[in-house]
């Protein structure tokens, strides 16, 4: 359990997928206008990440190296289609809201980077643990960003009013506002990383 938390810490700060490695920003920015759509996107990406790790680590020895990219992308696209059909069936209002942005996950960098860097080189247990940690990291980031954007932009949290409507900043709801909030979060993560590094060097 202790190693799990230290691994999670490493994933969350030193190797943060969206804020340090800059992958998966596209679904993150699009789905973070409201907290509930952020939660739906977090669930979709997490399930795709974990199942793609399972499938790819199982078939990794059967795929020749030069067609590996195509094979991984087809596997990921199949899983994304499954997620899309599930969302269409159980959460139809969110399917309408997110529109083309659920199939977009199929070419998002975060799933592919995970498949290419981890699942293609390791066994099923290691890749699933790593995939779960990446999914947790992504979920934490998207939930934070969507919380801030909904609170600042429309003054609500899960449609409960927190701030009067006339004080909402519409900039936070636009894509540019999302990028600025992400930049602030990236600065926080970078600061924590540098504090940790200086602590390690001091010991």
């Amino acid at each position: 359990m202790k190693t799990f938390f230290s691994l999670l810490q490493k994933k969350l700060f030193a190797e943060n997928a969206p804020l340090v490695m800059l992958v998966g920003l596209c679904p993150l920015l699009i789905a973070s206008k409201t907290l509930i759509s952020g939660l739906v996107m977090a669930a979709a990406i997490s399930s795709v990440l974990i199942f793609s790790c399972v499938v790819i680590s199982l078939v990794r020895k059967l795929i020749p190296d030069n067609v590996r990219l195509v094979a991984y992308m087809i596997i990921i696209a199949t899983l994304v289609s499954v997620a899309e059909i599930m969302i269409r069936a159980y959460l139809p209002t969110h399917y309408v809201n997110l529109g083309i942005y659920i199939p977009i996950i199929a070419s998002a960098g975060i799933v592919f980077a995970q498949a290419d860097n981890v699942a293609s080189k390791n066994g099923i247990v290691v890749s699933v643990i790593d995939g779960t940690l990446t999914a947790i990291t992504f979920s934490i980031v998207i939930i934070t960003v969507s919380f801030l954007r909904e609170l600042l932009g429309s003054g609500t949290i899960l449609s409960h009013r927190m701030i009067e409507e006339e004080y909402g900043m519409s900039f936070a709801l636009s894509g540019g506002g999302g990028l600025v909030i992400l930049g602030m979060l990236a600065a926080v993560v970078k600061k924590i990383n540098s504090i940790k590094k200086s602590k390690k060097e001091g010991e």
Partner: peptide, 15 residues
């Protein structure tokens, strides 16, 4: 210092 690299790039892209 905390904004060097990625964070300032994200904020610039936002602006």
């Amino acid at each position: 210092k905390a904004f060097e690299g990625v964070p300032i790039a994200l904020i610039t892209a936002g602006l």
